[in-house]
Design a protein around this nucleic acid. Structure first.
Lengths: 254, 254
DNA sequence: AAAATAGTGTCTATGAGACACTATAGT
DNA sequence: ACTATAGTGTCTCATAGACACTATTTT
C-alpha cells in the first residue's frame, strides 16, 4: 500500500551522526496491537470468528484474533500473521479498517490497536473455526445503511456473547465499511468460492446490506459490470432449472 | 467515535491482582505519532499546510504537522492538539484517515503514525499558514477518481516540494477519501465559510473532484438534499446578478 | 445597453424497479 | 404434469445532463 521512500536530506555524514545518537526511549511509547475481524456470510447471516479469552483482562469474554505488533513486521504483515496463527488462513482479502486508541480501552496498559477486517467464503470460514478455541459468532446489526456503531453477537444457540475491549465497535465498523464498499469495490466475490451463481451473489449482497435487493437490476448491474466471467458450466443436482456458474474476473492490469 | 466500555470479567480481586502484576515492558513497543493533513480548496486548487523540517531526518524537507502520542490522550485528541499547536486552529472537521506502519518509514526508529485529515475554508487556512514555518503547498493530483497513490506538491511559485517520510502518500489518501465521501457526507461545506453561494459550493466540489460538474443537476441535487438553508440574503458588490447566500443546515438530531 | 452570472422550465438519455413471460432442471 | 428457479423482454419512474430562456445586478 505505502510507497517506498528513497531520497534523504542533507549530507549523509551529518544525518547518520544524528541517527546514531537518536534515543527512541526519550518519548512515551504505547503498546501497539493488530486485531482482525474475519467476516463471512452464510445462510443469510453475517458471522465473525471470536476467541474466548483465557487470561485477564476480560477473561471469559470473547475477543477478536489479534496480538502485539513485532519489531520487524509492517502492519499488514502483522494482521496476516495473526490470521494465519489464530485461524490457519492465508491469502485472504485483508484490509485496514480503523485504529482504536482511547486511553482506557485496555485496563492493562495503553494499547493502540490497528483493526483489520478479512473476508472469506463459508467453507474456508468453517475450516478456520474448526480450531480449538474459535467460536462462530453471528452478527446482529441493529441499524440499516452505514450508520455505524457497535453490533450484537450471538453464538450458534442464539445466546448473546460478551465482547472484550471495544471489539464490538470494531466489528460494527467492519460491517459499515463492507456495506459502503460493496457497490464499488469487488468485495462481494471475496465472500464466495471460486464459482457461484448470480442468485448466490445476490444473497451475499443482501446479507451484507441487511435488506433485499432487486433481482432484475442486480443481474443487469453485475453482468454489465464486466466483473463476471461465465464459466459455461451449470449447477448440478438442484431441483429446478440449474443456473449458470460465474467466476470473478480479476481485472487484468489495463 | 469509540463507545465506552464498562463491564469487566471474573472476580474483581482476581483481575485486579493480575493487572497490578502486568508488565507492559515485556512486549516490544514502537513509537506512535499522529500526523494531520490540513486541506483546503482555494481558487480551483487544493492546498495543504506543510512545515519545513529543521531537524534530521529529512532535514529541509517538508512534513505534515504531527508529533508523538502522549500517555494521557486519545488519538483524536492528539490530532486536535497537533493542529492547535502547529496551526492555531481548533474546532475544525477532523477525521482519522489511515495508519502507516511500514518498518523503514522513519529512519530514526520504528514509528507507527495515525494519519488524520482536517478541512477548513480558505480564510482560516490563510490564518493558519501565517505562522512562522508553515508553507502553503498546492496539491497536484495526477489521477482522476479515487485511484489513490501519492501526490505532487508545489509551493506558491510552482517549485516542487520534497515531502518527508511517506507524507505524500498521506495527502494522496486524504484526497482519495475526500473524493469518495464528497457525494455522501456533508464535507464540502467544511471547505467554505458560514455562508456561500451555490456556485461557490460547486467550485469547491469541482476542485476536490478535479473535474467540472454539471451546474443544473448540481443545483438540483444540493437544493433537494435538505442540507442547505437559504439565508434570504444575497451577495453584494459583484458585477452581475447577485446570488442568494446559503448556510449549511446542521441536521437536527432526528 | 452591455456584460455577466443567477435561476427556471423542459426535453432527453440512462438506470432501477416492476412485471410478464419463457426455459429447464428434478420429482 | 408440477414445482421451483433461471433468464429475457418491456414498461414505467426517477434522476442526470443538455439546452433554452428569463432575471437582476454593476458598469
Amino acid at each position: 500500500m505505502a510507497v517506498k521512500k528513497s531520497p534523504r536530506a542533507a549530507t549523509p555524514t551529518d544525518e547518520q551522526r544524528f541517527l546514531k545518537g537518536y534515543d527512541a526511549s526519550r518519548f512515551y511509547r504505547p503498546s501497539v496491537a493488530v486485531d482482525v475481524a474475519l467476516v463471512t456470510a452464510v445462510e443469510g447471516e453475517l458471522a465473525t470468528l471470536v476467541i474466548t479469552r483465557t487470561e485477564h483482562p476480560f477473561k471469559g469474554f470473547q475477543a477478536l484474533p489479534g496480538g502485539f505488533l513485532r519489531e520487524a513486521e509492517g502492519l499488514d504483515e502483522a494482521a496476516a500473521r495473526q490470521l494465519q496463527t489464530k485461524t490457519g488462513l492465508s491469502g485472504v482479502y485483508l484490509e485496514q479498517l480503523y485504529t482504536f486508541g482511547d486511553v482506557g480501552r485496555d485496563p492493562r496498559t495503553r494499547v493502540v490497536t490497528v483493526a483489520y477486517y478479512a473476508l472469506v467464503d463459508g467453507n474456508r470460514f468453517r475450516k478456520a473455526t474448526a480450531g480449538k478455541d474459535a467460536i462462530t459468532a453471528t452478527v446482529r446489526v441493529p441499524w440499516e445503511g452505514e450508520t455505524g456503531g457497535p453490533v450484537e453477537l450471538v453464538d450458534a444457540t442464539g445466546r448473546p456473547l460478551r465482547l472484550a475491549f471495544d471489539h464490538d465497535d470494531v466489528i460494527g465498523m467492519a460491517i459499515k465499511r463492507l456495506r459502503g464498499k460493496l457497490d464499488y469495490a469487488p468485495i462481494g466475490f471475496q465472500l464466495l468460492g471460486d464459482t457461484f451463481t448470480l442468485l448466490e451473489l445476490q444473497r451475499v449482497h443482501e446479507t451484507v446490506l441487511g435488506r433485499p435487493v432487486n433481482k432484475d437490476s442486480f443481474r443487469r448491474r453485475m453482468l454489465a459490470s464486466g466483473q463476471l466471467d461465465a464459466t459455461g458450466r451449470s449447477q448440478r443436482g438442484v431441483d429446478h432449472r440449474p443456473a449458470e456458474l460465474y467466476r470473478f474476473a480479476r481485472r487484468s492490469a489495463v
